[in-house]
Amino acid sequence: MLSRIAESLFWIGRYVERADDTSRILDAHLQHLLEDPWMEEDQACRSLLGVMGAAAPAAGVVATRQTVLDTLAYDRRSPGAIAGALASARENARRARETLSSELWECLNTTWNALPGRISGSTPHDFFAWVRERAAIVAGLVQSSTRRDATQNFILLGRSLERADMTARLIATRAVSGPAGPGWTTMLRSCGAHEAFLRTYRGRDSDTLAAEFLLMDRLFPRSVLFSLEEAEACLTRLEPADPRGHHPGDARMILGRVRSGIEYQPLLSLLGNLATEMTRVQQGCSEASDAVRLRYFPSGATDDWIGGRM
């Protein structure tokens, strides 16, 4: 497979997952902001922006729901916002058009076409619900109509990396907002884990259990540990261990290190240092993403493109 195509596939996976997760995080946080009268809107919005890696407004300016929506949901130019991520996903799909199934391309393209109408014409909650639905269709098409070859592995690799990163950010929002912030219930709900959690722990409502669930549940597909393992599995499928049993590639090593940091660290020590640990996961994902690029998408795009040949 062409490196350029592989890179686009990888990023389709990441962008769609980013749109999905961001909409989940925002939906839960903004709903909580409405339902809990004792929340400080400015402070809550700032910490949310910060955790999502966006710049907070200047000191004098009050951050509101609208600021959050404009920055993280509706901005079509920023790849960190939902609209921007969906637009970028479609952009990447256009580049890998001949490798993608028509269904997948059309799904991403219709999503992009419908964006302006959805942004102006629906309430935030409806917008988020729509984004999640579109992401679910993409996931379904990848699952049901993509051959289990490198195509799927690159999409899944991107998706799992992004998912680990996003769940880490979600957990970090809890760590930074202090006791006044949204509780673990909100956290769980935002990644669709609330019901799964309640059933797993039979309604025992403990913060420690909730944190454990999101960090390292082995069966829940959005936990940090599950996503990291999934990403590692994709790397292994792309490049199996050599005859000596060594796994080639830096990405594998980076992910393995991050994963064992979570898997083999006592829960309480993890929890005591949650914000830092979660930043470490995000950094790990970012480094792994770079390593994947160096390994599979070797050179800077501008160098090996020959304009005009298209």
């Binding site: 910060g50 999502m52 970090a172 913060d207 420690t208 970012s286």
Partner: peptide, 27 residues
């Protein structure tokens, strides 16, 4: 939300943590 174990991840006053900047495809 403040049960006996509520100190988890919420110890101390709220503070600001800047998440890692989101990557994007350089292309």
């Amino acid at each position: 939300h403040t049960g006996p174990t509520a100190a988890v991840g919420s110890g101390g006053p709220p503070h600001h943590v800047q998440g890692v900047r989101l990557d994007s495809n350089p292309n």
